[in-house]
Each structure stands twice: as structure tokens, then as C-alpha cells.
Amino acid sequence: MIQRVLEQEKALSQVLKADRKTKHLVLTWQDTDVLESISRTLGPLLEFTDALSGEDYVSVSYIKPVLHLFNNTVLAAADDDTELTKDMKTVILKYLNKKYSEPKTVDLLDIASLVDPRFKDAYIADDRQEFIKTRAVAEILSLLEVQAATFSEPLPHTSTEAAADGPDGAEAAEVAVEWQSKKVKRSLGSFFKKASSDGTAALADREAIEVELKSYLQTMQVDGETDPLDWWWLYQANFPRVARLAHKYLCIPATSAPSERAFSFGGNIVTCHRSLLKPETVDKLVFLANNL
């Protein structure tokens, strides 16, 4: 809006001067200086806001690099800045740095940039790099344990009566009996063997994760225009454990804009003339409107 006013300043002045009732609304040079200072400060932020509000690409890993860029380049005080421009830049930087200074948020943003092959540890503070790498290893190990626990859950039907209820009940019952018999045949020594091997396996997994993470961080830096999801699609076989962490973090949106768009779609669908729509119907319509 301010840019548009500055672009049309001469035309606006001529129109306002032509009428006595609006002559007092003509911009003075002080007004113009204020608008130019505001435009100079907020103008560069427009493209960053649009980029971080997207939902068709990875955005959360951009936050730390963008904050670094704001602090060192975009919002850094310049020699030709007016006092108002400098004050606005200072206030904006103070707000942004405070907004993203909460410890849990900082950890999340650091790991998100770590698993982005475009940035890795380039924007993580030197005194936090080892902590973030250790945390990443622990999270990967936790993800692997959850996966192992999921695949090691017992069969849902362990009794012959429950297995015999389906169309293939006889065959299912045989499988259940065989599985139960195998379970009963376990010896007491197997429990001690498993207990001793679990610690060794966990240690081996941690070492393997650390080696894989180190190898990933040593790979060649990719171009800033590269889609990290495409990169991980190509190289997830080389770094399967780190890829799990990337899947967990890179899907997070950087702003609330995507959810606000979904609410807007919902508001356009559920109107006063369509207030009796069932919730499941609304869910389907919002999904279609948001994805078609």
C-alpha cells in the first residue's frame, strides 16, 4: 500500500489540490520521508514472508538461515538509513530474535536445518553443534526403537478360537498354534542372551548412526535452489537413518499460513446456506478444495 502511494504521489497531489476540501490531505515532505523509511524497511521482508508461507515445498529449514540473513544483511543498519529506518530495523530484529529464542524452538530449527542438505550445520552456533548432533543421534535411535517395537508386536489372534472365526479359520488356527508353540519352546537362557545382546546392539546402532551422520555432513554442499525432498529421495539409501529424521522434521511448515488457508477453505464451504453439512462431508470438501 505504501509503495503504491509513493508511486502515485504526483497524481494524488494533483487530484487532492484540485479540491479545497481535500487540499489539506496532500502529502508533505515529512510525510513522504516517513513513508519512504517504512517502505525501505518493510519492502525486503515481503518476499521472505511469501516464501516462508508456502506449503508446496520445505520451509521450516529456512528459518535459521533467514534469521541469519536478517541480522547480518537485510535488516542491518546502513549508513544512508534515516533514524526512523534504523529504529524500525532494530525493533523488528529484537522481536524476531526473541520470538525464536525459546530453547525448544531453537532445538527444532537447528535440527531442521541440520537435515536439510542445503544448510546442514552452517547456521548452527559453534557452541551448539555438538549438542545438536548428539540430540539428532538420540532422536534417530528413538525412531529406530519405535520402528522395531512396531514390527515386533505379537499377532492380534493368539488363540485357536479367535483364529478359527474367519473364512480360513482352520489354516489361521494352525498358524496360531505353531506360533504359540514356538513361543513356549524358548529356553530360560534365551532371555539372558537377549538382555546381553540388547546393550551391544544399542551401542552398535548408536555408533552406526554417528558414522552415518558424520558422512552425511561431509557430503558436498548442494545448490540453494535444490529441493531437499528430491535430494533425500535420491540419497536416502546412502543415509537411511538420517533420512528418517529428515522425514520427521522437513514436513513442518514454517508459519501458520497453511492452516489458516485450510480454515479459509472451510469458511467458504460451510456457509449459512450449507450449515447442515456433516463433519465428514466438510472434511472431504476441504481436502478437495485444498488439494485440487
Rank of each mutant, 00 (worst) to 15 (best):
S59L: 01
T22W: 07
H247T: 09
D121W: 08
H157R: 11
Q180D: 00
A149L: 06
E178L: 11
T219P: 05
D19M: 04
K182C: 02
E212P: 07
D126L: 12
V146M: 13
P156R: 03
P167I: 02
V115W: 02
I124D: 01
V74F: 05
K21M: 05
I38E: 07
L276S: 15
V115D: 06
V106E: 11
T160Y: 00
V184S: 05
D110I: 00
R20I: 05
D87M: 13
L93T: 04
K23I: 00
D107A: 11
T32W: 00
K248Y: 12
T271V: 10
D227P: 04
L229S: 08
D127C: 13
D79S: 11
N97H: 11
L114N: 04
R244A: 13
P228T: 09
L292E: 06
V26D: 00
P44D: 06
V282W: 05
S190D: 10
A76E: 14
Q30P: 06
K193N: 13
D79T: 14
K89G: 07
I132C: 03
A18Q: 10
D19C: 03
L143Y: 08
K278C: 04
D87G: 04
R4K: 13
A237M: 02
V26R: 00
V175L: 12
W232H: 01
E207P: 08
L25P: 05
P228N: 01
L75S: 04
Y95E: 14
A170C: 02
N97G: 07
E139F: 01
V211C: 10
V66E: 07
G266S: 08
T134V: 04
F287N: 05
G224L: 07
H157F: 11
D223R: 14
A76R: 14
S152T: 11
N238L: 08
L93M: 14
V286A: 10
S256P: 05
L45K: 12
D33R: 05
T200A: 11
E210L: 08
D107E: 12
L46W: 09
I111M: 15
V91N: 07
R128P: 01
K21H: 02
A112Y: 07
I111H: 05
T105W: 06
L93K: 15
T49D: 01
L93E: 01
E130M: 12
L141H: 12
P258I: 03
R4P: 04
W233L: 10
D121V: 13
F48K: 07
K64T: 10
L276W: 12
I2S: 00
G267A: 09
A149F: 02
A173M: 00
L67E: 08
D80V: 12
E212W: 06
Y100L: 08
T150M: 08
D198S: 10
